[in-house]
Design a binder for these strands. Structure first.
Lengths: 203, 203
DNA sequence: TAACCTACCAAACACTTGTTAGGGAAGATG
DNA sequence: CATCTTCCCTAACAAGTGTTTGGTAGGTTA
């Protein structure tokens, strides 16, 4: 029985996570296809071939980055959805949770936003489509619940509203900078104020 | 003096435009970097090298696509801004005009949306940064004018609101399909209804 | 008819790409 | 001490990249 095996495993996992983080940064900044494994290796302070000691391929890095992001995202979402709040409170919680995820996984969100459309076609990234479906279902049902309960306007096209809300939330990852002057909660508050009450003065 | 020179020139220009349109489609679908000149040539029914009879390089195709899109966009915007409408009417007209441009230049908008961040760094695409500045100025001043005039709420962060509005409008190019069930004007109406009045029922 | 131009093809070029194979330094293990 | 494992380097590979060069069928012009 190996006595000192576990510390090595966690150290390797930590290094792996470290490399994935730097890879995610480069992917987010330059785009996946425009990013060469040599650039990733540069940022990590090593040579291109050495990356293959840790990973099977460039594509598997991308997969692991997106997988771990979506896992955490759904951890937060499921907690919100499981709380069985009212429609308005659910929407507020989902938006706030989304901006928190952007704060924590800015790079992964940016990659997802940019590459999702091309990746879902590949069967390796089928989990993206799965996530997309659950995502749409959660948001649509919340909006519909709100319309039925009379807390959201019924004259809006729900699908169209869903698309607007979804896009605006996630596209924020392209300009959001952690440690900037707005906290995720502050951004969520402003955003919810706009979407829920509008920017026009009530007359 | 050449007698039949003009028809040939316009025929060449038409073919050029035709090739740029197919190139834009492929760029929008696969991403600029992931698109090979051979793929463009395939879609155009010719061989890769033949493209270089019409264009200097792959990059010059991209530049011409974006340039002609921005030219038309600013044609519409300048007309709106020159009309000197009230802030709310200006915002409504800008949004509507944007969705019309998406309808007419879906591919170019999608490319712009996806590649803008990496392109502005190159001096060849400095006109993108210029356009970006004018864009921000037009929207910000409209919002500020509205706040000053009391038609927009004053408790909103104007810069944040600008980002939300800007992103949501343009990201629509990723899911909008011309000839679909919503006209650009209908989408603009729904969007303006959400942003101006909010989705919550007024109590 | 002869000379010319337009718009494309065929074939190659230099270079970059993701990936692999073999080796070696440094520390942990027995 | 010797052995093993971890983690990286060196050097190369085959495939794919944007681009160039020379040629040519077919219509236009003189």
């Amino acid at each position: 029985m190996p006595t000192k095996k576990k510390p090595q495993v966690t150290a390797a996992a930590a290094r792996r996570r470290e490399l994935l983080d730097t890879a995610a940064e480069v992917f987010a900044e330059q785009g996946y296809n425009a990013t060469t494994v040599r650039k990733i290796a540069d940022h990590a302070g090593m040579l291109a071939g050495s990356l293959y000691y840790h990973f099977d391929s460039k594509e598997s890095m991308l997969e692991e980055i997106l997988r771990s992001f979506l896992d955490e995202l759904w951890g937060g979402y499921d907690a919100v959805l499981g709380a069985e709040l009212g429609p308005r409170e659910t929407l507020e919680a989902l938006v706030t949770e989304s901006f928190r995820e952007i704060d924590r996984h800015r790079a992964a969100v940016a990659i997802y936003q940019k590459e999702n459309k091309q990746l879902v076609a590949q069967e390796r990234f089928a989990f993206l489509a799965e996530s997309q479906r659950r995502f749409e279902k959660a948001w649509l049902s919340t909006l519909e619940r709100g319309v039925a309960a009379g807390v959201f306007r019924s004259d809006l096209d729900v699908r169209l509203t869903y698309r607007f809300v979804r896009d605006t939330v996630w596209v924020a990852a392209s300009w959001y900078r952690p440690g900037g002057q707005h906290s995720p909660e502050e951004i969520a508050r402003q955003y919810l104020s706009m979407v829920l009450d509008g920017i026009a003065v009530r007359t």
